[in-house]
Nucleic acid binder design. Structure first.
Lengths: 148, 148
DNA sequence: CAGCATCCAAACAGATACTG
DNA sequence: CAGTATCTGTTTGGATGCTG
């Protein structure tokens, strides 16, 4: 019986969860974790960070070309937010035509390390999730079409 | 000089990124990673998972009480989606009054492990991000008020 | 090239009322 | 208790046109 081991893991888990959930309850912090979670909440942020981490430094249109389907407006908005949060560094060269380069900051790279693990998890478990969806779709309420 | 060490890390990073970014380009997979990333994209999903992981098993209103600010509609929608994706298990007891219990599945717990790391990161780095925002706000375009 | 501004459609999410 | 249904205000995000 590896009860003690399980207990230990359970304990560690509990501690971490407390640490995370604590501030969301308190009135002191206005919006601590939630605000950060919102950052990788939108797909464009995460994709931008992935690609910047992959390429190192990219100009606006280079990045746009890599992120398939993003509009120029969304890329602008996303980059501004990431810059505001200190995850992305923006360097503007006063030339004609203008050149602007983006790259991850130190903080951005440390964030990348975190979401890479998540991306891997998603990559490894997407099959299971898709299978779960199929099962759910074909379970009684089979009428509703699966559309994605 | 720890060049080799850095190079190794760089290599490993590159591989992981390729693995993650690959499918988003291909036409074969309709929406692989992006669909999963969308799951923890909305804050209610992540918060629900945190709380379910913390408590083990919870009834609908117990969960609602814990997640401060969530509307009953959003909790329903969130739980349905999580159930559909196989992250949450729902058990309905045909009693009067009705009782429904929710808990994480195996897949859900493995997902929790991932986002716990992210939650910790957020908890540890929220100061830095908030500081970055302040700096950004007071840099030239100081007119725009900071509203959160 | 790298954007900003505007318009508009669609998705999201809160409030409210009702039910087995 | 644990929802469903509906209505509506808000946010999001694409498309388009214009600038230094």
């Amino acid at each position: 019986m590896d009860r003690t081991n399980v207990d230990y893991q359970q304990d560690s888990l509990q501690k971490k969860l407390n640490k995370i959930l604590q501030p969301t309850v308190g009135v002191l912090a206005p919006c601590p974790i939630r605000n950060i979670l919102d950052r990788f909440s939108d797909k464009w942020s995460t994709l931008s960070i992935f690609h910047l981490g992959d390429a190192g430094t990219l100009r606006f249109n280079e990045l746009k070309k890599r992120i398939d389907g993003i509009s120029q407006r969304m890329l602008t908005v996303t980059l501004r937010t990431l810059e505001r949060d200190g995850l992305v560094k923006r360097r503007m060269f006063p030339e004609i035509p203008p050149r602007v380069e983006y790259e991850l900051t130190e903080l951005g790279r440390s964030f990348l390390m975190q979401i890479i693990e998540l991306g891997e998890w998603a990559s490894d478990n997407s099959d299971q999730i898709l299978k779960a969806r199929e099962q759910y779709a074909t379970r009684e309420h089979s009428a509703s079409a699966v559309k994605w």
